[in-house]
Design a binder for these strands. Sequence first.
DNA 1: TGCCTCCTTGGTAATTCTACCAAATCGCCA
DNA 2: TGGCGATTTGGTAGAATTACCAAGGAGGCA
Lengths: 106, 106
Amino acid sequence: MEAETQARFELRTRIIKALAHPTRLFMIDELSRNERCVCELTEMVGADTSTVSKHLAILRGVGLVQDEKRGVQVYYKLRVPCVLNFFDCVESVIKANASEQLRLVE
Amino acid sequence: MEAETQARFELRTRIIKALAHPTRLFMIDELSRNERCVCELTEMVGADTSTVSKHLAILRGVGLVQDEKRGVQVYYKLRVPCVLNFFDCVESVIKANASEQLRLVE
DNA sequence: TGCCTCCTTGGTAATTCTACCAAATCGCCA
DNA sequence: TGGCGATTTGGTAGAATTACCAAGGAGGCA
């Protein structure tokens, strides 16, 4: 694989990796409906604040979400709605797999 | 986060994680154009055969690709074309980030 | 100013991922 | 049958990821 090709796929990988965690996926799903402050997300996720903050930093780092400080709180919102289409695709893979497994059993 | 919600996002994460590696991304891109045997992919990627085989096993494990043995070779092909749309989305994130950085510099 | 809440950053132990080498398996053909 | 090339599987060292606790700002308010 050429160096430039390698670099291009590494760039893409960085963004995909940022998505590759249940908590981060959940937060993106939530942020697609409403902007939320860290404390709200922390409450919903049910993990340590520092953990949630670090997950958000990862999403922010690759440009998937945007933050905005308002007073003492920090609000996050989704910056790239098109990732939602992808979730539909992922969902279709899951369904296809399930159907296939069912077919094999019957 | 409820247990069921957690489970749903973990299921999605498994598929996204399978995508989260430059070599696997490269192979999916290649397989979207042509089916390929392991030896061809190994040649293109430029890694050990066992490494490539393991990457393919990961993609196969989540149902993203399909394998078919023909004689002594094993051919792989993409099972879920919709992931390609996602790459466009990822690309748009990269472009948006680059534009933003440019804006900040100017 | 002093304090309280919200959030981020450091540090660390445990888990997971990855690449390569070795060894096993499989199909083909002399 | 024996050998050969293609592929997978086992094993392992090194790198990366993740969760939590502690500590460090930052903003608002008495």
